Computed example of a mutant assay.
Amino acid sequence: MTSRILYLFASAAPPVFDIAQVIETAQADGWDVCLGLTPTGARWLGDSLDGLAELTGHPVRSEYKLPGQPDVWPKADVILFAPATFNSINSWALGITSSFVVGVVAEAIGKGIPTVTMPCVNAAYAQHRQLHRSVTELREQGVTVLYGDGGFEPNPAGSGKPAGYPWDIALSAATHLVDEA
């Protein structure tokens, strides 16, 4: 049986520290996981990157490859971008692809790769109108955005509740998108 390929992308938000457990959960469900991080996410997990690469069996990526270099990952069946920060969500919706993971998810829209994202923003960021515009824009382009009812609900600024991040909802949504295809 061929494994399904999950690109698991993450920004620098407190739930990123649970990424190894999320990878193990996905692998137990039959996923072959490729991990991509924003540059700051990679910096936050710096001491763990080699272990995460060993866990997934693939290099952890946070930068674009150079022209002429081969792609080191298999083709994705689905992409899950979680946690996705205020910056990542807005950059993606606006087409600002200065980071590798944002570039891949922006391109995924045009390639028709099923994509799920779950923001991780505090209640102060949630008051900014651009976040709501960006969520609407991504949804209109076919991205499953797990935000609000049935997804991520913002915490008060400074409360930092990474244990409450609903990873199970995000993984379930990614599985559902592939099963629908």
Rank of each mutant, 00 (worst) to 15 (best):
V143R: 01
I5N: 08
T56F: 10
F86K: 02
R129P: 07
V116M: 11
A173E: 07
V121P: 03
M1N: 07
A181Y: 09
L94V: 08
D29H: 11
F86T: 05
F17G: 04
S159L: 14
Q141S: 09
K111M: 13
P74C: 13
P70T: 10
L146K: 03
L131S: 02
T85G: 15
F17Y: 13
L171C: 00
I113C: 12
D149N: 11
E54Y: 13
A163I: 05
A181H: 11
W31D: 02
Y7Q: 02
H128G: 01
D71P: 07
D32Q: 12
V33A: 00
Y125A: 00
V72F: 05
G110L: 13
A163W: 13
A42G: 10
H128A: 06
I96W: 15
L66Y: 13
I169F: 05
N90C: 15
P83D: 13
C34L: 12
Q69T: 04
H58M: 08
A76L: 01
D168I: 05
P70H: 08
E63Y: 10
K65L: 13
K65I: 07
H132V: 00
P14D: 01
Q141E: 07
A93I: 05
A108Y: 03
A20H: 07
A163L: 14
S134N: 04
S91V: 07
A53R: 05
A181S: 12
Y64M: 10
G103L: 13
V78D: 08
N87T: 09
S62Y: 15
T136H: 09
R133M: 08
P119L: 06
A76H: 06
E137A: 05
S3Q: 14
S98Q: 11
G150K: 06
A20Y: 06
P154L: 05
P166D: 14
T38R: 05
Q21M: 10
T25P: 04
P14S: 02
P119K: 00
G68L: 12
K65P: 14
K65M: 08
T97Q: 08
T144D: 02
P83S: 12
V105D: 08
D18H: 15
L66I: 07
